[in-house]
């Protein structure tokens, strides 16, 4: 049996099953959907055990050169605490593990996230006007006006009338342009996925049909 052709056919049939939803909901779509969810769950469980638990935890606790590092029992206990959510009586234990994850994540992110996504952006907005060609200065002005008017639109402590109202209108226009750009990029992304599937169907799957029927190369 040619496993490559079998794989291509399975991929093609599941693709057709999934796209059949565009006509209407149907058993073929449901089958492909459930197959995908089940396979993903199975794949991820095995992958996490093989690539996360064994190399990062088990091999640290029981090294191949011998010995036993008992300290690694502690993270193991925290892992079990996470699973306690499935037992209502002891579900509260999972909060200890979640607390540790959220705490370390917040601690690590607090400075870095603020620095990268707030300070650097504010600095970039302010200093962008200072230098460059005429076009660059114009572009920077658009940026500054866009940022300030966008912020004014979200400032609700003063009624949007007069100058504030006009600035808010500029802000909402800028926001609409940004949403439009985002929408355009999203269409491009979704079409790219469709193109990828169509290329697979036309260039990989279709040529296997004559081969299976014993006609052509």
């Amino acid at each position: 049996m040619n496993w490559e052709i079998l794989g291509i056919w399975l991929g093609a049939l599941v693709t057709l099953c999934l796209y059949s939803f565009l006509y209407r909901d149907n058993p073929f779509y449901k089958f492909a959907e459930h197959l995908f969810v089940g396979m993903s769950a199975g794949y991820w469980v095995i992958y996490q055990i093989e690539n996360v638990l064994i190399p990062n935890w088990w091999q640290s606790m029981v090294p191949s050169e011998g010995g036993f590092n008992w300290i690694w029992i502690i993270p193991g206990i925290f892992v079990l605490f996470m699973l306690a959510r499935m037992v209502p009586k002891i579900a509260g234990l999972s909060r200890l593990s979640l607390g540790m994850i959220i705490g370390s994540g917040a601690g690590l992110n607090m400075v870095s996230f603020f620095q990268t996504n707030a300070m650097a952006q504010v600095k970039g907005t302010i200093f962008s006007v200072a230098s460059g060609s005429v076009w660059s200065i114009f572009s920077s002005l658009v940026l500054v006006v866009g940022v300030v008017s966008g912020l004014i639109y979200f400032f609700f402590s003063k009624a949007h009338t007069g100058v504030v109202g006009k600035a808010a209108n500029v802000g909402i226009t800028i926001l609409m342009v940004a949403f439009g750009a985002s929408f355009g990029y999203t269409i491009m992304a979704r079409l790219s996925l469709l193109i990828g599937r169509c290329q697979f169907m036309l260039e990989d799957w279709l040529p296997t049909i004559p081969r299976l029927l014993g006609i052509g190369g």
Binding site: S182, T186, A189
Partner: peptide, 14 residues
Amino acid sequence: TAVSAPTLYTYLQT
């Protein structure tokens, strides 16, 4: 991916 591109332009400008 194209979906995430608009949000990442800010990192180019800075």
